[in-house]
Design a protein around this nucleic acid. Structure first.
Lengths: 217, 217
DNA sequence: GCGAAAATCAGAACGTGTTCCAATTCCGAT
DNA sequence: ATCGGAATTGGAACACGTTCTGATTTTCGC
């Protein structure tokens, strides 16, 4: 989906001084096969996660399912954690793209937020093991993955911000961003409570509805 | 601190039918040495975590530092994750006990909540590696640790609830509990952002102050 | 096409959480 | 004081994430 994201380590074939134009080097057989490899690895990850959750995503199995060597998986994703976090970021980006095309139609900000997040949670509930694996990776994140964690939180906050001031095209106010951040934090914590088995899946919706009601007049 | 918490697996020396009185069997050389062992293990855990965070808490080292066999550590704590979560629960329980004696004196609920949580965060910042280890364990939690996760969240929510209706002795209203839960979720998410390196430690205080201002009129 | 450089492969190897086991020690009741 | 059973010990063993290595294949500029 991303326009040929370079593989993880300093992309060895990064544009040298020879071609300083900003073109992201999207073409070439190498780039294409690399993108395909990356995609196979991510797909294999999702497949395994869907079957048995975090523990079922074993790097040797990912490599085998993606039909690449173990070392290649690590060339693209520095760790299992990062692999799952990148899958999570992609999932959230897909959700945002979908919402750009199908924005919520409810009349009030609170109703729109609740509608969007209920929809998202419905999807997450369909693949509880995938969600558990992703949320778990999110909760374990270390400094070396701070960039993706930030990306994921920014996407989630963006989704909520858009839902708040739905059809309007103005930039979000400072207060809207604050509220969106709080809702995102509630969302993440609540998902964590669900995948830990502390609360049922419905509790996520309830938490978000309550928070939205209190925060969005 | 807890009145002789029984070791993890079905405490083998649990009161059999012979002594049905509810006395928690706090006495006896066995119970005493077990309590001491448990304490040594927890202390060793904190010591190692303070030195190098989650990764420095290696079960073999914990066993050695606590002067017990590796198998004994696992008899008391089913996993490294659980070990750290129990330490976290104890830490939170200590905080609550302290606050019962030194409740916040600010005039408004929001100010009291902010005061209490700022104080807690100040302590957490003094031992960032310990905090990181605990928060990380919290974020990784699995179903088999749902009970401690619930205990930790309940203690945190209780701390916040008490701060909201400070000196008053009435039970919390339904709305207060809802607000307290949201604040706890913001707290946990924000701590996660800090230990992940996504945000600086001050962001935790800022998030909580903003949320408290919005939620507590 | 050819050759150098990069990427990939297959698999061994290592570290740490976790489990398992036989031998020993400790506790509590007789 | 002694016996039975539970707790503890020391250490081997296993699983899986991760790293490393040397051989092989692919790509790209000429």
């Amino acid at each position: 989906m991303v326009p040929v994201p370079p593989p993880f380590p300093p992309p060895p074939n990064a544009e040298t001084a020879a071609d300083p134009d900003a073109e992201p080097a999207t073409e070439g057989a190498l780039a294409r096969s690399q993108a395909a490899r990356r995609r196979r690895v991510l797909d294999a990850t999702l497949q395994l996660a869907a079957a048995g959750g975090f523990d079922a995503v074993q790097m040797r199995d990912v490599a085998a399912a993606a039909d690449v060597a173990l070392g290649t998986v690590y060339r693209y994703f520095a760790s299992k954690e990062r692999l799952l976090l990148e899958a999570m970021a992609e999932q959230q980006a897909d959700l945002r793209a979908y919402l750009d095309v199908h924005p919520p139609r409810e009349p009030t900000p609170a109703a729109r937020v609740v509608s969007v997040l209920r929809g998202a949670n419905r999807s997450l509930r369909e693949f509880p093991d995938v969600t558990a694996a992703m949320v778990r990776s999110f909760g374990t994140a270390q400094i070396e993955n701070a960039d993706i964690v930030r990306r994921v939180t920014e996407i989630m906050t963006g989704i909520i911000t858009s839902a708040i001031h739905a059809p309007e095209r103005r930039p979000a106010t400072e207060n809207e961003v604050r509220v969106a951040r709080i809702l995102m934090q509630v969302w993440l914590s609540s998902l964590n409570g669900w995948v830990c088995g502390v609360d049922g899946p419905d509790r996520v919706d309830e938490d978000l509805a309550a928070a939205a009601a209190l925060l969005l007049p």
